[in-house]
Simulated assay, not measured.
Amino acid sequence: MLEILHSGLYSSIQDLGRFEYRNYGVPVSGVMDEYHAKLANHILGNDENDAVLEMTLQGVSVCFHEATQIVICGAYLSPILNNQAVRLNVPLNVSKGDQLKFGKRNYGVRTYLAVKKGFQTEKILKSRSYYDAITPKSRIATGDFIPYQAHVKQIGSKANIALQKEIFINKEIHVYKGPEFDFLSKQQQEKLFNTEFSIGLNNRMAYQLHETIENECPSIITSAVLPGTIQLTPSGKLIVLMKDCQTTGGYPRILQLDQKSIIKLAQKHTRDKILFKKLSIL
């Protein structure tokens, strides 16, 4: 068991999500940054879909009640194991009673803690991903116990995987044209790709952008949306849907992020700047 001594700001158990229930209105959910979650699992020899602990801006404080191996990947939140700073992207052996905590955020927004064979929380609709109204809770809380399988065989820590700095510092967000993109005038389209947008309110459901685009689009019937869909509201505000987004929406869908750009956006913070770069249809 992993005992949660302090839950951090917004921490939850996530795997790659639910993909077979959108027709019932069930969101995909899953890790916001698939690259670093998969990387953590790969370093441990886990299945890439094994559940990890996702932390946002502020890390947890935990106690391990069984020996295992762990990896931390993603944003640098100054991890400390038994009062000693540890590196990202390397396997670490932990013993019963060891404690892990996090400190100052240096870069990025989300970081991932993986354990050998993954966290063994309940599967609901073929996924362990927390989501309010699907799972009993949407985030972990201080005092929770998260199950995992004990693994006493120690592993070496010679891995040296380079940090993908582009994910954290690159402002370019690659997008495809959305179904209603051509509703925009040429001037609106040019403004869309020549404006440096700043991130406003954001969470696992959506990122709002501060700058606006004049909206003269006709209304549409409620239609399917996906993580990465960018909607244009009547007020001209842009909303980028993320992993916990709804399955349908009634605002024009003017752009669609590619998968790598969802990952980059998941590591951006309030007031960070982004630029949209249009991709050709494959």
Rank of each mutant, 00 (worst) to 15 (best):
M242Y: 03
I254S: 01
L184K: 13
V62A: 10
P91A: 09
L184Y: 01
R18E: 02
S223D: 13
H65E: 14
E166W: 06
K243W: 07
N202E: 03
N106S: 12
D132C: 07
N46V: 11
S235R: 15
L163G: 06
S61C: 12
Y24E: 13
L192M: 03
A162Q: 12
F119I: 13
E166T: 15
A266W: 00
N170K: 04
E172G: 08
N215G: 12
L39N: 04
I13H: 02
T195Y: 02
L125C: 07
R22Y: 09
V60T: 13
E216A: 05
L184E: 01
V94L: 09
S185R: 11
I161L: 15
Q208P: 05
C73F: 00
I230H: 03
N46P: 10
Q69G: 09
H151S: 15
Q231F: 07
L241E: 03
E216D: 07
C245H: 02
I239T: 04
F119H: 11
L226H: 08
K237L: 10
Y10P: 01
T248N: 12
P179L: 12
K237I: 05
I239C: 02
I72T: 11
Q231K: 08
M55W: 01
A224S: 12
P136E: 02
K243P: 03
L9P: 05
P179R: 14
Q267T: 12
V109R: 00
Q84R: 11
T233L: 05
F197V: 11
L184H: 03
F102Q: 01
N170L: 08
F102E: 02
D244M: 11
I239K: 03
V225G: 00
L279Q: 00
N93D: 05
F197Q: 01
I161Q: 06
D33F: 07
A67V: 06
S261R: 03
K264F: 02
P147S: 09
K268V: 08
H269K: 08
R271S: 06
T233R: 00
D272G: 10
T121H: 05
A133G: 05
G236C: 09
Y148C: 09
Y21K: 09
I169Y: 15
Q120K: 15
L265Y: 01
Q58W: 07
Y24F: 15
L209E: 02
D244Q: 02
F119R: 07
D272A: 12
Q188A: 15
D15S: 14
G74I: 04
A40I: 05
Q14Y: 11
F197H: 03
D98Y: 11
T68D: 13
Q120N: 14
